[in-house]
């Protein structure tokens, strides 16, 4: 990145994330209480990308994560809530950030995930049977991080994902569902991790994805929608995985993300001058990392974890 329209307020964003813990009683925090596990993943990964994970008390985080562990083997969004695959992946990712995957009962956890695979290869999110390709990605990503991919029928899992592919090259939640950048990320990510990207028409999907970039540089999630910082992640990661990321204007996108910063109080919002939150702060910073913004750690587009964390998992310490 040579030309920058503004600067990333690293210190402010770190302060913003750390301050979220103190605002536990705000309406916003209470409303998001049920998905605190996702919040932890967003916040902590952002800190790691900014090189500031050391400012967090790791033992405290790990002990809280383990309080969300459920006897079924899955993790809940917060203490007292039910387990769900959405929060199980976040829990595993948080533990991976701290190089603490060894605290897990890996057999039990992988049994929980493989137990959610259905006859047709799809995955349910929990015992209540909602099916979605998001859950396919989560199951595959999670098991791969734990070196347990052989616990599921990957061939069927891939077959189901392919059945959700649309005529515009994208993917939906279920067969026939409309293409959506978030859903595309999940399906492309799952196919990437299983070595099956050849099922994708890269040029067709790549063009659909690069057309998500609108005039002001931001990316939207579907045609004729407004741009939003979170799609910087979904669209960019997908484009990187299929080697078509050069089809968008990276500098313009970086400019859009930087324009969405709250330069006074830290944090990043969906669009310029909107209210910030930890979700968009993470996606903004992760997007900038994909754009090779100087000073940020690199993040893996499929596993959504810093590259050094992934290298440790797959190549050991050497």
């Amino acid at each position: 990145m040579d030309l920058l329209s503004g600067e990333l307020e690293v210190e402010k964003h770190v302060q913003y994330i750390l301050s979220l813990e103190e605002k536990k009683d705000s309406l916003e925090s209470v409303a998001m209480d049920y998905l605190r596990m996702n919040g932890a993943y967003w916040g902590l990964t952002t800190l790691d990308l900014l090189g500031k994970l050391g400012t967090v008390d790791r033992d405290e985080v790990i002990s809280w994560v383990m309080q969300c562990h459920h006897e079924s083997g899955g993790f809940a969004g917060n203490v007292g809530h039910d387990p769900h695959i959405l929060y199980t992946l976040s829990a595993v990712q948080v533990l991976a950030l701290f190089d603490k995957l060894d605290v897990l009962d890996i057999d039990k956890l992988s049994d929980y995930i493989s137990g959610l695979q259905n006859e047709d290869g799809s995955f349910s999110g929990d015992i209540w049977g909602e099916v979605d390709t998001r859950f396919s990605y989560i199951a595959i990503c999670c098991l791969s991080l734990l070196h347990q991919l052989d616990k599921i029928n990957t061939e069927k899992a891939v077959e189901y994902i392919v059945s959700c592919q649309n005529l515009d090259g994208g993917f939906g939640c279920t067969p026939g569902g409309e293409s959506h950048a978030g859903q595309i990320f999940c399906c492309v990510g799952a196919l990437a991790i299983t070595g099956c990207l050849h099922h994708i028409n890269k040029d067709l999907l790549g063009w659909w994805l690069c057309e998500r970039q609108v005039k002001d540089g931001g990316l939207n999630g579907r045609p004729e929608k407004l741009p939003d910082v979170c799609y910087s992640w979904w669209v960019l990661s997908s484009l990187i995985m299929i080697d078509r990321v050069h089809w968008i204007d990276k500098e313009k996108l970086a400019g859009f993300i930087l324009d969405c910063q709250d330069k006074e109080n830290g944090g990043i919002s969906d669009r310029p001058n909107d209210a910030v939150d930890v979700y968009h702060t993470y996606f903004g910073v992760a997007g900038l990392s994909h754009l090779e913004y100087p000073g940020l750690k690199a993040i893996d587009p499929a596993y959504a974890l810093p590259v050094d964390v992934i290298n440790k998992i797959f190549f050991g310490r050497k």
Binding site: S144, A192, T194, G195, M241, D243
Partner: peptide, 12 residues
Amino acid sequence: TTRYLCSSPLSH
């Protein structure tokens, strides 16, 4: 950008 298009331990 080609890591997942080639053989690698990351994609099994």
